[in-house]
Amino acid sequence: MVGVPESHSGWTFITSHARVLAAIADNPNARIRDIAAHCRLTERAVSRIIADLEQAGYLSHTKDGRTNTYRIEPNKVLRHPAEAGLSVASLLSLLVQDETDRVRKPVAP
């Protein structure tokens, strides 16, 4: 995972489930430990979230030795009625940066 973000207190717009899904989209081979650090969650919380996402059909994984490779179902529709018709791919397009966007460009004064 690319650098761990600084801690934050207070409310945020994105749920922990969305953060974990975005972290996995960014690196499908990420360890739970790395996802937890990146999302500022406990490993136990990340494990529960991954189980939730797998149970609901948004995520699956294959195991190769000790490594998990996650697969996101991009066409799966989001659960809340307010997001009717939006897919996981739509959500991830907002949350996951392209490699070319990772290097922040200087902001003009």
Results as ranks from 00 to 15, higher is better:
residue 102 R to V: 11
residue 27 N to G: 04
residue 102 R to F: 07
residue 90 S to Q: 12
residue 17 H to F: 06
residue 14 I to R: 14
residue 60 S to P: 00
residue 9 S to V: 07
residue 49 I to G: 06
residue 68 N to L: 14
residue 4 V to W: 09
residue 82 A to D: 13
residue 33 R to G: 01
residue 5 P to S: 11
residue 60 S to V: 03
residue 41 L to V: 03
residue 68 N to V: 01
residue 22 A to D: 05
residue 80 H to G: 00
residue 93 S to D: 15
residue 102 R to G: 02
residue 25 A to L: 01
residue 71 R to G: 07
residue 72 I to T: 09
residue 100 T to C: 01
residue 49 I to K: 08
residue 5 P to W: 02
residue 94 L to Q: 06
residue 39 C to G: 04
residue 68 N to H: 13
residue 28 P to A: 09
residue 69 T to D: 01
residue 72 I to V: 15
residue 16 S to F: 06
residue 35 I to H: 05
residue 103 V to P: 00
residue 74 P to D: 10
residue 3 G to K: 01
residue 97 Q to C: 00
residue 30 A to Y: 00
residue 51 A to W: 07
residue 2 V to E: 10
residue 62 T to R: 15
residue 55 Q to S: 07
residue 107 V to H: 07
residue 98 D to W: 01
residue 77 V to C: 02
residue 56 A to F: 08
residue 74 P to G: 08
residue 32 I to T: 08
residue 26 D to K: 11
residue 65 G to M: 12
residue 3 G to T: 03
residue 24 I to C: 04
residue 82 A to S: 14
residue 54 E to H: 00
residue 33 R to E: 06
residue 81 P to R: 13
residue 61 H to N: 01
residue 54 E to K: 01
residue 31 R to H: 08
residue 101 D to P: 01
residue 59 L to P: 08
residue 76 K to M: 14
residue 38 H to L: 14
residue 106 P to F: 09
residue 45 A to S: 14
residue 38 H to V: 07
